[in-house]
Each structure stands twice: as C-alpha cells, then as structure tokens.
C-alpha cells in the first residue's frame, strides 16, 4: 500500500497528513482534516454535494485524489464565513430564503455558488439555475436556493 505525505492549505490553515494513493480529496478532508462539512453524496461526480474550491475553482472532491491537492489552496464550507465567524452573504441568503432543509447538499451548493459568483456576480436566474444544475437537492425544489443565490449575487456585486 503506497502512502504519500501531503500538505495543503485548507481554509487558510496548513493541513498535512499521510494518504493512500487511492484516497480521494473528499475522504481526506472529512477523515484526516476532520472537516466533515463536505459531504459525499454519490462519489461519482454527479450530485455535487462534495464540491470544494481548489485554487479558486469549484471541483468535485470525490473526483480528485487527495495526493493531487498537495500544495493546493482548498476552501471548504467551513472556510466560507469570515474568520471572526461573520456569515458570508451566501450563507446569510441561504438562511433568509429557506434555501436548505436537510442541509446535506448545502455545502456543495454554497461552495459552487461561491466560485461561480466570485468570477462574476452579475448573473441571471437562468445562469444561476444552470450553474447549480451540477448540484442535486432532493428537499427544496431549488427555488429557495435560486432566490438565495440572486440575493447574495446582488450583495456581492456591490462589494
């Protein structure tokens, strides 16, 4: 069994550890880094629950080996709020708009939208719906999530 020493910056902190070659990033974050806010919903790259931000890009953490994230900057849901705990506009908007019920898809929704709106917060509803079409939610019917994304986008555009 081959193991690798990896080190990455996760939510601004250095995280290092030993990983097996086959360990995907999602498992590493959850099990070795203790960041269980990233959820595994399908482990074949469709549901989007495990989405994290690696070097600025939203990626499926189940479709990337942990060893591939060596030396990368990783942001998970735990790193979305400000360091002092102030919620990010997306998080605020999710609460305001009842954009979550069971909360399992929420991390992937917020990280996806974070990356998407960081690139350009001026987005139409259709663009937002397409952007989160790679994130499955079984509870909400998406409407609250779309409203939340629109509300946050407006705030972010003013920043």
């Amino acid at each position: 069994m081959q193991e690798h020493e990896v080190q990455m910056h996760v939510n601004g902190k250095v995280v290092s550890g030993k990983v097996e070659s086959r360990t995907h990033l999602g498992d590493f974050l959850r099990q070795s880094a203790g960041l269980t806010g990233t959820h595994l919903g399908c482990e074949h790259g469709v549901c989007g629950a495990c989405t994290v931000i690696v070097d600025g890009d939203a990626v499926r953490s189940c479709l990337m080996l942990a060893v591939q994230a060596d030396n990368c900057e990783v942001t998970t849901i735990e790193g979305i709020a400000e360091a002092d705990g102030t919620l990010h506009p997306l998080q605020e908007a999710f609460r305001n708009n009842h954009a979550l019920q069971c909360g399992f898809c929420t991390a992937g929704m917020i990280t996806s939208l974070h990356a998407f709106l960081s690139e350009n917060p001026n987005r139409s509803e259709t663009e937002i719906r397409e952007a989160i079409s790679g994130n499955i939610c079984r509870c909400t019917g998406y409407q609250g999530i779309v409203s939340a994304a629109m509300e946050a986008a407006e705030k972010l555009a003013k920043r």
Binding site: T36, T76, I77, L87, Q91, F94, L100, G103
Partner: peptide, 8 residues
Amino acid sequence: LIRGDGKY
C-alpha cells in the same frame, strides 16, 4: 448547517 457544522 450553513456553516458546515452539521452532524450526520
């Protein structure tokens, strides 16, 4: 839940 502090 929005902070990723859920416990499943």
